[in-house]
Design a protein around this nucleic acid. Structure first.
Lengths: 220, 220
DNA sequence: ATATTGTAAATTGGATCCAATATGAAATAG
DNA sequence: CTATTTCATATTGGATCCAATTTACAATAT
């Protein structure tokens, strides 16, 4: 006898679920910088014991999203302005190269998918969704490069500054500007102009960096 | 009353110890690609329970050094030739920029420390130590940049290809060549020539990349 | 009042136990 | 003899318990 093998997608392990949830909460700023992560509390929230929670926290620390001290626990790690700038610098270095190598490999589907990403971004009136849609757009284009390691590293960098990026988007004309720049990048990709796509990406990122500095300074 | 505060360096947690030991064993190739990590076995080796072992494995997975499957455990993740090349590409992109920014910030101490690093590398007849000494040299110079995030990312990239790098060093004239290139990079730093230090670093890395490809091809 | 000490509660780190799943070998059917 | 099934064993995932340490706060001394 043979059955249609119903793909029972195995439920993920508890530690993975906790990890993803905490990661999301941290990068979106739902738990603030410096806020401690209490193992008991989190375990209760997910109806598990502290064991999966501790594994999740180990991973978060390895990713740099939390810092732990022995017997004192984990706190969400913040970024100084300097550190945030450094990560923007890092992105401005690596992402242009990735998109440059991605452009010649972009399929029609990739371009169409990216188009709908920027369209969704452009059309969305919900600031909460801007962060995700922004990342979707860039990730879609980068994915065509097939450079998995680069993509992983970029993801980590994005995780670390996600909060600040979201803040940029809601501030002043951040969203409108990002939108225009997305379209320009996308058009360069459609035209197969790798160098231009790279340069526009670089400007896109360093522009965000500058506006971050401005905002920080305006708070003094 | 005032005492000299004796800095009782707290013993690290068991999970940290296990993590560091496993990391070292993996990057140095003491445990081979594809080899499973048995929690029980490792726990016995360190006279602990499986709990710290599991936290260590979680971190290793986050670092990309092992891959786990639910209920099947963790195996040391290998790198395909393509993946190894990608990481060399990545390094060739980021490390020149880091050293370029580091050069103007290098103190006499930094340069002296780097000099003794390459001297030790040059003088060492023990191939087992070459990997570490090579990393020491580069890290010392990069450290002057103060770019902590970049340094962390570079460290992870180095971890992933450490095995392959060591293989390069012992092969043919890998060690002699690396040694000459180190000296050239160091002299550019001493001369304060950031652009040249960057370019030499780029060549140093892409040279290693090419010789990796050669070795892989020669195995067919 | 302020600083110091002592103590109980809170919190984390780790050990042990149980449950869920995978693995492999023996038993069985064809 | 080969393929399938059954079942015991090995291994991982998670829960609960205990130990080590920190933290908060009351008691005490100056």
């Amino acid at each position: 006898m043979k059955l249609n093998s119903v793909d029972i997608s195995k439920t993920a392990s508890a530690s993975s679920i906790v990890f993803e949830a905490l990661r999301k909460a941290i990068i979106e700023g739902d738990v603030k910088e410096g806020e401690p992560l209490r193992q008991d509390e989190i375990a209760r929230m997910f109806n598990t014991s502290r064991i999966p929670v501790r594994e999740a926290i180990s991973r978060l620390e390895e990713q740099g999203l939390v810092k732990t001290q022995r017997y004192k626990g984990a706190v969400v790690s913040g970024l100084s302005a300097t550190e945030a700038e450094e990560i923007f610098d890092f992105r401005a270095l690596i992402e242009p190269e990735v998109i440059r190598r991605a452009v010649p490999l972009m399929s029609a589907e990739t371009l169409e998918s990216a188009r709908s990403s920027w369209a969704a971004f452009s059309a969305s009136s919900d600031p909460m969704s801007w962060g995700d849609l922004n990342r979707d757009f860039h990730s879609t284009l980068y994915l065509a490069s097939g450079l998995q390691y680069h993509l992983d590293v970029i993801d980590n960098a994005m995780d670390r500054i996600d909060r600040y990026l979201r803040a940029q988007l809601v501030m002043s004309n951040g969203m409108e500007r990002a939108n225009e720049e997305h379209i320009a990048i996308w058009e360069a990709c459609v035209a197969g102009n790798a160098k231009q796509a790279a340069e526009l990406t670089r400007l896109h990122i360093s522009g965000a960096r500058e506006s971050l500095i401005q905002n920080i300074n305006s708070l003094r």
